[in-house]
């Protein structure tokens, strides 16, 4: 009995005694084909990850994506927001580069506004539907700091913005291109 296994263009013959070897060969062939497919898959996946367009969104984009209520900043809907950050820790907002980023926070007090102005934040979004007090609104207006409120949770809010290409602050600014 003769077994013939085709390896691409090369027909290789084995005698019946070597049947087990042949099967082993086929097995390894299948295995290498599988790992090739796996590699290709990973390559494609990586390309996809790298292909996500990192870009600045406008404040209007952010408002729409978060279905947010705009409380302060009607006149600033077209400003570009270069990245995003999420924090309830105001001291953290003062470390690292947070200028021109959107801050998502669950904290709702005047210190959020003051810290954001000091850090040069572009806009503040209160998550989980938090509503600012009159004092907070007055402060934000006084400093020209856009203030929004979204019903989404912190996690969902971050995800919705990230998904549209808004990156975190650790992303290199040079890789960003402005959408408008």
């Amino acid at each position: 009995m003769i077994y013939v296994a085709e390896f691409g263009q090369l027909p290789i013959e084995f005698c019946a005694k070597c049947a087990r070897n042949a099967l082993r060969c086929i097995f390894f062939f299948e295995l290498s084909a599988l790992s090739f497919e796996l590699f290709r898959f990973i390559r494609v996946r990586n390309r996809r990850v790298n292909d996500i367009k990192t870009k600045a969104l406008s404040l209007k984009d952010i408002k729409d994506l978060l279905r947010a209520e705009l409380i302060v900043g009607e006149d600033k809907l077209d400003i570009p927001v270069k990245a995003g950050t999420a924090s309830d820790l105001m001291s953290d907002m003062l470390t690292g580069q947070n200028s021109n980023v959107v801050l998502l926070t669950g904290l709702c007090n005047v210190q959020v506004i003051r810290t954001s102005v000091i850090a040069g934040v572009a806009a503040v979004v209160l998550v989980r539907g938090k509503q600012p007090t009159e004092e907070i609104i007055t402060q934000a207006r006084e400093h020209g700091l856009p203030l929004l409120s979204t019903s989404f949770t912190m996690f969902t809010s971050c995800g919705r913005l990230f998904n549209k290409g808004l990156m975190g602050v650790e992303e290199k600014v040079s890789t960003l291109h402005h959408s408008r």
Partner: peptide, 14 residues
């Protein structure tokens, strides 16, 4: 209020 992480003085120093 969002403070008290013990990062203030180190951050000033930096």
């Amino acid at each position: 209020m969002g403070f008290g992480a013990g990062m203030g003085l180190p951050n000033i120093n930096k």
